[in-house]
Every structure is written in C-alpha cells, then in structure tokens.
C-alpha cells in the first residue's frame, strides 16, 4: 500500500502486490521482448536508406517472396473464413455423433508442432502420398508447389475463425431469427440480412487472426513448399537464408518489413475486437 501512493498513474486499491508484480512484469517483458526487438530496429541504422530499400523492397527475389507469403496467407484465410464459419455453425447449432471430439480437435493446430504438421502434410500430398496419388493423374501438384503452401497455412489458421465465431454464434438471440421468419423472410434471407451482419465483426477478427498467423508461419511451409527461389519461397525463409549467408543487414531489412506488417495486423485486430465488443453490447 505504500507503493500505491508512489504510482500516481494507478487508482487506489487495498490489495497488495501491485509494485512487485508490475515491476517484475515490466522488467521481464523489457529484457525478453522489448530490448531484443529494439535491437532489430536499431540494426537498420547500420545501413543507408537506399541499401534498406534495395534489399527489403525492390529486390526481385524478396518481392516474389512477399507475393507468395501474402498471397498464400490471404487464400488460406479466405478458405478458413468460409469453412471455419461452417464448422463453427455446425458445432453451435446442430447435434451429431462425435461432436465433442470434433469440437476438441479444432484446437489441434495450436497444440501440434508445426514441424509435425509440416512433414505429415508433405507426405500426404506428395505424388506417392495418400491424397497426392489421386491428384497426380489429374495433373494437380500440391506438395512442392503453391497449393501446398496454401494448405499448410490453412491448417495453422483453422482454429482462429472457429474459436472467435463460436461465442458470437452462441450469443445470437433466437428471437431475432423468429421475428425475421414471421415477417416472411426465407431462411437464406434471414441468414444473409440478419445473422451474417451480426457476426461479421467476429468473422473478420478471426479472418485477420488467421491471416496474421499465416504471414509469419515457417515450420509447416518449410517442408511442403519445396522452397524454390522466385516460386515457392516465403519471406520468413528468405530471412533465414540471408542469416545463413551471414548477411545480417539483408535479414534485418526483411525482418523490419515483416515486423511493421505484424504491428499493422495487431492494430487492425485490436480495432476489430473493439468493434465487435461494441456490436455485442
């Protein structure tokens, strides 16, 4: 309580331990997260702006990598938006055998290491794999090609849409749907005009979370992508390649661009969450 008066930014409380826990929180976070991230940003001062621009923005190999990373992440997030909506809807609205197991396994991509899902997906979709051997005669190449990257990024983003939509769908008032139906709307019209607009903020939040996670993903993509420069090379891999060549500056330049993208996504997600909370209130 003596510490309470010293922290003027804090409201008075009789509970003890604020100074201790807050002090430790700030110290630990600064040491482990903020100072190392600051080191990355500060590292850019070792190069001129022209060098930074050339190695992080205009380099054709880097540009191609951004295109692969953002393109595949976007497609993956859209797939998750559509199928995640269906999964969440089915889990909230319907009953079917094994529903509890299905509900639990949605979280698997959070718990399963990316290296494991990476080698499993690659083996599954390689031309001799369980799924790949059926796609091969059709001329569809998944592993070691762009579709493989999309599949890996869809897998790791899967829980985000489902888990942000589930509570929003559970909170829906059945009365609104009944009112819509009694006013003569078909089921599809009710869905389009009443249900979808209400859960849209949650859907967009899930979409943004899945996209943000996919952009930074490395492990699962690394195995399935084939990693051909200009074709199936993602931006995080290019950072690793530059580091292995001891090109710290080149790695830093791409790293800073990716970091800025992460910050923007974090901001977008916070705004979306704020929006959906206001919507529900």
């Amino acid at each position: 309580m003596t510490t309470a008066s010293r922290f003027r930014f804090k409201q008075h409380s009789v509970l003890p331990g604020f100074g201790l826990t807050m002090g430790f929180t700030i110290f630990y976070m600064a040491t482990l997260v903020l100072i190392p991230l600051g080191g990355l940003v500060l590292f850019t001062t070792r190069m001129s702006f022209a060098d930074f621009w050339n190695s992080a923005v205009t380099d054709p190999r880097v540009l191609a990598a951004y295109k692969v990373s953002f393109g595949a992440s976007l497609i993956g997030a859209v797939l998750n938006g559509v199928f995640g909506f269906i999964v969440a809807w089915v889990l909230v609205r319907y009953t079917f055998p094994g529903k509890r197991v299905v509900d639990a396994i949605v979280d698997l991509p959070f718990a399963l290491p990316t290296a494991v899902s990476g080698i499993a997906l690659t083996t599954l979709y390689a031309h001799t794999g369980w799924v790949g051997r059926w796609l091969e005669p059709l001329g569809i190449k998944v592993a070691y090609a762009f579709p493989g990257i999309v599949i890996a990024l869809t897998l790791i983003g899967l829980p985000f849409v489902v888990r942000t939509l589930q509570p929003a769908l559970e909170d829906l008032e059945i009365e609104i749907e009944e009112a819509s139906a009694s006013l003569g709307a078909s089921r599809w019209q009710t869905f389009r005009r009443v249900l979808l607009p209400t859960v849209l903020p949650a859907l967009l939040t899930g979409f943004a979370l899945a996209f943000a996670r996919a952009v930074g993903e490395f492990g699962s993509v690394y195995f399935i992508a084939g990693n051909m420069p200009y074709k199936t090379e993602i931006a995080p891999l290019l950072i690793l390649i530059r580091l292995e060549q001891f090109d710290y500056l080149g790695a830093t330049a791409i790293g800073v661009v990716m970091l800025v993208v992460s910050f923007v996504m974090l901001l977008v997600i916070n705004l979306l969450q704020w929006w959906s909370r206001r919507y529900q209130a």
Partner: peptide, 27 residues
C-alpha cells in the same frame, strides 16, 4: 497489447532478434 506481441511476430523474427544481439556480428 505488448504482452501479445510475440504471438503476432513470426518465429523467424524471434530467432533473428537474438542473432542480432548475440550472433558473431551482432551487438
């Protein structure tokens, strides 16, 4: 938001920042 930061950052960048601090040519 700051506590959430490591979730938003690519794991490759998580490795990179420590190489830039403690690697042979780092700070």
């Amino acid at each position: 938001t700051l506590i959430d930061l490591p979730f938003a950052i690519s794991p490759i960048i998580a490795g990179l920042i420590f190489v830039l601090l403690f690697g042979a040519r780092g700070w």
